[in-house]
């Protein structure tokens, strides 16, 4: 067993867990943050994406013990003061989600993408950067639109009226 302490969404979380516990299990079962999902077992679907020390990672492909001492942000920690993050708001505005299962990972990946690359982002870049996130509902069309809009907004650029 391992004593694991990390900061999750600004709060210290300490649990004693089996060494084999994945970060996603620590978050879901230990911290009670069930917004992070598991959609595959081959580390490909991206439903589990969270930020560890500011970078998007697959929380199903990291042991909780590896993240000990790290700052972790999950989908639950993205909105601040009741205000949706611009990416969250854009997903709603552009209908970038249907069943909602891939959505937390998609949004966390999108925030990371915009943090790394700035904005506004073009369609080809967004589609390429989404390689690690699978959605079965939306056909990606509106996810791409949402991320483009959010990246433009976050870059302070006004989107062209559609």
């Amino acid at each position: 067993m391992a004593d694991v302490t990390m900061t999750v969404n600004g709060k210290t979380v300490s649990k004693t867990v089996e060494d084999r516990t994945l970060l996603v299990q620590f978050l879901r079962e230990g911290a009670g943050l069930t917004g992070t999902h598991v959609g595959c077992d081959t580390s490909q679907c991206g439903a589990c994406v969270v930020h560890v020390d500011g970078k998007a990672v697959k929380s199903c492909t990291m042991l909780a013990a590896q993240a000990a001492g790290s700052e972790v942000t999950t989908i639950e920690g993205l909105a601040s003061g009741g205000e949706l993050h611009p990416v969250q708001a854009a997903f709603r505005e552009h209908h970038g989600l249907q069943c909602g299962f891939c959505t937390p990972g998609m949004i966390m990946a999108a925030v990371d993408m915009i943090n790394r690359l700035g904005g506004p982002l073009d369609e080809a870049t967004i589609r390429a950067e989404l390689e690690g996130n699978i959605c079965r509902c939306t056909g990606y069309h509106n996810i791409v639109k949402a991320i483009a809009a959010a990246s433009a907004e976050m870059a302070g650029v006004r989107t062209a009226a559609e």
Partner: peptide
Amino acid sequence: VTRREDKRFVTGKGRYTDD
């Protein structure tokens, strides 16, 4: 109309069976 169910999904508050 934008979807009324979206707020819970974009904030990680959806409740699925495994939750």
